[in-house]
Amino acid sequence: MWQGWPIERVLILFAGLAFALIAVQVTMFHSRQNFRHWAMWVPVIELPIFAVTAIVLSFVNAGWLRVVFTLMLVLGLAGGVFGAYLHTVGVGQRVGGYSQSQNFLVGPPIILPLLMTAISALGLIALFWG
């Protein structure tokens, strides 16, 4: 089954699986914080949709699905950067703010939303590589 799959198709499948795993982690982190900010719901809702779309697209190469997935990935790029901003602000709101290195360890993970940005960029590269 895998023989003959172009790298672009494998990368789209990988992006879908990565979005699914990130969705689990983000849901656990945000539910632990009781969804204190409305933006915490955004990745919890969109990441499973991204995952399913990518996985389906890796098996069914429909033109309209590629367009939808492209728009989702652009949204993922922007959402990840916005999430990193919100997480950075969240670290600063902890006692001691940015001067306490411990806040970067126990506060909102700044890198996690950037991982969403990176996987979105990987998906776009896979879609437009050829």
Rank of each mutant, 00 (worst) to 15 (best):
L77M: 13
G63E: 15
V24S: 08
G130L: 09
V81T: 12
I125V: 15
V26G: 01
Q100Y: 11
P48R: 04
L47I: 13
S99A: 10
I119R: 03
A18N: 04
M28G: 06
A118L: 07
A126P: 14
L57E: 06
V91D: 08
G97E: 07
S120R: 05
M1R: 11
F104E: 06
V95K: 13
G123V: 03
A78W: 08
G76M: 06
A126E: 06
G107I: 05
R66A: 02
V106N: 03
W129T: 11
A62M: 14
M40Q: 13
I7W: 11
S31P: 04
V67L: 10
F19K: 00
N103M: 04
V26L: 03
L11H: 01
L124S: 09
S58T: 06
G90S: 15
F29A: 02
L75I: 14
P43T: 04
L124G: 08
L73M: 15
R9Y: 09
P108E: 14
I49H: 07
V67F: 12
I12E: 01
L122A: 05
L122N: 05
V26F: 04
L75D: 09
F50T: 01
V24D: 09
I119M: 00
F19T: 05
L77G: 11
S101H: 10
L71Y: 13
P113G: 07
M116T: 15
W5I: 09
S120H: 09
A20M: 08
S58R: 01
P6A: 06
G80K: 02
H37S: 08
A126W: 07
I55E: 08
L11K: 04
L21Y: 13
V60N: 13
V52Y: 05
G123C: 06
Q3Y: 13
R32A: 15
L105M: 15
F50M: 09
G92D: 13
L114R: 00
L17S: 04
I119K: 00
I111E: 11
T70D: 10
V67A: 03
W5A: 02
L112Q: 07
F35L: 08
V44A: 12
I110D: 05
L112F: 12
I125K: 04
L77H: 02
G4N: 14
V42M: 09
V44N: 05
L124T: 12
V106Q: 11
V68Y: 12
I45T: 12
M116R: 02
F59P: 05
V42S: 02
W41V: 13
I55D: 10
I125D: 04
I119Y: 03
V60H: 13
F14Y: 05
V89M: 13
M40K: 06
A54T: 07
F35N: 03
S58H: 11
L122F: 04
R66E: 03
A126S: 14
M116F: 09
I111C: 00
I7N: 07
G96C: 14
I49E: 09
P109T: 12
E8K: 03
W2E: 15
F35W: 08
V10A: 12
I125F: 12
I110L: 15
G97S: 07
H30S: 00
L13I: 08
R32C: 04
L71N: 14
G80L: 01
I22F: 06
V91M: 10
